Amino acid sequence: MVVGDDRRTGFSRRRQYGVLFSYVVAIGGAAAGGMLLLLSTLNPPLFSAIRMTVADMTTPVASLTSGAGQLLLAGPRAVGTYFAVHAENAQLKREVAATRGLLTRARTINYDNRRLRALLRVRDRSPAAVVSARVVSSTAGSTRRFGLLNAGRLSGVRPGMPVRGPDGLIGRVVETGLNAARVLLLVDPDSIVPVRRTRDGVPAIVAGRGDGAVDIRSVDDLGMRFTVGDLFVTSGTGGLYAPGIPVARAVATGRDTVIGRTVARPDTFDFALVERPFLPLPSSSPAPPPVPPPTNPSSAR
């Protein structure tokens, strides 16, 4: 026979004491609440003093409890903040990368616009302009220095025509195709340009070296003194280049021959203006018609 489990309250003294204690606490709490309510009505100053005393006693405990709660919440909050900041940082990096690309393109467009405006001003002043073209490539790995234009015979470009950029002289056309032209650059060893110094008009010669620089040579038998910064422009001698186009600057001091740098730097070649020769070669005069041989009167009989 199985004895049933007796779950009544009186079965355990511990449970009896617990129930009794809960009753005592409930009755005491109700009594205290009633006394405080009555006190707040009959003597508000005393009730206020008691309330502040209790507050002074419980404030440290409440502060400690609040600090412990904040400390417990700080860990999850820090983890959440880390992931949020990490995601925001990644988003900002993507935006910066996109903005950097846009900024680079904007700077490139701005640079091209400045160069084109400068070239247009040159074209407006040049009565011999043939066509504006882009320098699509240039050689830099050998002693021979050429550039390639994206304009040729269909645009009126012919061998021997001068080529200049927004900054100064670039060279001359040596070969042409239908839509392309080959330009001999000033730094090529075969390039020779008659020039004059701007500050006193003394003539000189600018010859290419093949290494990115040029030689500025004196044409005076007495010798010529060069100083750093001397600017040389085309003189018009020879009839190919119009006078006054910037060509080179001296980068050393010396006599007879010094090293110079072209005003139009090869690393900035982008847009170019092809011009007609300053003094075109005169066309050859037509040959006189042949004179018929004189007829013999005796043979006519």
Rank of each mutant, 00 (worst) to 15 (best):
S12H: 13
R13T: 14
A30T: 15
M35L: 15
M35F: 15
S40I: 03
T41R: 14
P44D: 01
F47D: 03
A49G: 02
R51M: 09
T59V: 06
V61C: 02
G67Y: 06
G67D: 03
L73A: 12
A74S: 10
R77C: 00
V79L: 13
H86P: 00
H86C: 01
A87M: 03
Q91G: 07
T99P: 00
R100A: 14
G101Y: 07
G101V: 14
T104I: 11
T104G: 06
I109P: 00
I109E: 10
N110R: 11
Y111V: 03
D112F: 11
D112K: 04
N113A: 15
L116F: 09
R121G: 06
V122A: 14
D124A: 12
A128R: 15
V130H: 02
V130F: 02
V131M: 07
R134C: 04
S138V: 02
A151T: 04
S155I: 00
M161P: 01
G165H: 06
E175C: 03
N179W: 01
V183S: 05
D188I: 10
D190Y: 14
S191G: 04
A207E: 13
V214C: 05
I216G: 02
F232Q: 02
F232N: 01
V233N: 05
T234C: 12
G236W: 04
G236Q: 08
G238S: 10
G244I: 11
A248Q: 05
A250D: 01
T253Y: 12
R255W: 13
T257L: 12
V263E: 04
V263A: 06
P266F: 11
P266M: 09
D267I: 13
F271L: 15
L273M: 12
F278M: 04
L279F: 03
L279Y: 01
L281A: 15
P282Q: 11
P288S: 10
P288H: 09
P292V: 03
P293D: 03
P297T: 06
A300C: 05
R301N: 06
